[in-house]
Design a protein around this nucleic acid. Structure first.
Length: 320
DNA sequence: CAGGCGTGGCC
DNA sequence: TGGCCAAGCCT
């Protein structure tokens, strides 16, 4: 094959260059030996959804669970889900409330509902197989830009820019030279990600997983370990002396005392119970009646809770 | 597009 | 101790 000739040198200017978008930097490499992929070959974690037997459904389930939830907490729940619902049609045939219950304490339980909804759509519209097209994936509930690219790339080996928080941080540091990426993904970030993507489909998929893993294990938000980084020598941020984040503090998440906390407590009661729960049992989780009622109403509106006659509540047995 | 949406571990 | 952080999505 024609090995594209690489610029003779991969110094800082290569990674940093004001217009790195027209050509691949040495970070990804259009050849088959990017330092990040080499590092990945050596240090990638052996995660169940990366094994061939996981299949596209396993990849998709893992991506839903990993949205804002750490790997270690996902692992046991992932195993339970795949054992119980080995195919999308298996989950689709069960009640949505069972998905919510089996979600356990992963957090953001609307993801469980959306994953169930996606399984129903896959069963009804795609013959029970996770679709291969990015646009079809994007049309499923709970799948956005990132997850569609991740499933297409990790499950089907396709060439997509997979821009998650890890990759965005790696690019922000190594290429742009700042500590953190913007709050929301920008057009410039998408353009950069596309420009860095290796041409070859299989290499591109490998690169996507590798750059994500680098952000998860080495180029972390706090306590990054540059001495273990395969591109430390070209990293714009490190070369600039690792300047601190400038500008307004990044938006933090509040939790204590919010409706979210109340919703969590209400749903925990319903998860533990098998069968309808009386209002009085729910009243015990929060002292303030107005906020309590608002939280319960919200859960019902979201389809996470099903109200029954006689002041009883349960996880949803039927679809909305 | 800023803000809502769970949960737990870490420094 | 409490703010920050963890493979986002939706409105």
């Amino acid at each position: 094959m024609t090995a594209p000739t690489k610029p003779p040198h991969g110094g800082p200017a290569d990674a940093l260059s004001a217009s790195p978008l027209g050509e691949k930097s040495s970070l990804s490499g259009e050849h088959l030996h990017s330092p990040v992929i080499d590092w990945f070959d050596e240090h990638a974690r052996d995660l169940p959804w990366r094994r061939p037997e996981a299949g596209s459904w396993g990849v998709m389930v893992s991506e839903f669970m990993l949205q804002q939830t750490p790997v270690n907490r996902v692992l046991p729940v992932y195993e339970q889900w795949l054992a119980r619902w080995p195919r999308p049609a298996d989950l689709a045939a069960d009640a949505p409330g069972e998905a919510v219950r089996a979600w356990g304490r992963l957090g953001y339980p609307r993801r469980a509902l959306r994953l169930h909804g996606a399984a129903v759509a896959i069963t009804e519209r795609h013959g029970g197989d996770v679709p291969t097209e990015h646009s079809q994936l994007l049309a499923l509930p709970g799948i956005g830009e990132y997850t569609a690219a991740a499933v297409a790339s990790f499950a089907y080996g396709q060439r997509h820019a997979v821009l998650d928080t890890n990759v965005r941080r790696v690019f922000a540091r190594a290429v742009t030279g700042v500590q953190y990426p913007p709050n929301a993904t920008t057009a410039a970030e998408r353009k950069l990600a596309r420009a860095l993507l290796p041409e070859d489909e299989g290499v591109a998929a490998r690169w996507a997983a590798a750059s994500m893993e680098l952000g998860a294990l080495v180029c972390t938000a706090k306590n990054e370990t540059c001495h273990r980084c395969p591109i430390a020598a070209q990293c714009a941020w490190r070369l600039a002396g690792k300047p601190e984040h400038e500008g307004p503090a990044r938006r933090g998440q509040t939790y204590a005392g919010t409706d979210r906390q109340v919703r969590g407590k209400l749903l925990a009661v319903l998860r533990e119970a098998h069968g309808p729960v009386p209002q009085s049992a729910l009243d015990r989780v929060w002292h303030e009646p107005v906020q309590r009622a608002r939280a319960l109403d919200g859960l019902v509106a979201d389809g996470l809770v099903e109200p029954l006659p006689g002041g009883l509540y349960r996880l949803p047995l039927t679809r909305l």
